[in-house]
Amino acid sequence: MDGNIKNRNNRRVELTFSVLDAMEELRDVWRSTAPLMELDAAALAKVEKQIGKARKALDGLEKTL
């Protein structure tokens, strides 16, 4: 397989897992704040960080298409 294609494919899969990983981190926030999910500053920062990671990975993924 051509090296560029191989790198592109690796990148696609890595970024796919990056999105999924960020969502799993997010699930932990929902779990630790259930049932009210009233987010304090630390929890809110974690949510924003994971959303940012997922968004960045999705943008990167789009660029590989």
Binding site: F17, L20, D21, E24, E25, R27, D28, W30, R31, A34, P35
Partner: peptide, 27 residues
């Protein structure tokens, strides 16, 4: 259930996974 509620079921409480465990499961 684990995201939306506080689950008191003794069968399940210490089997709740964390993100690292679920990431391994996905892979």
């Amino acid at each position: 259930r684990e995201e939306l509620t506080i689950n008191l079921n003794p069968l399940q409480s210490a089997g709740r996974t964390n993100a690292e465990v679920r990431k391994a499961v996905m892979r």
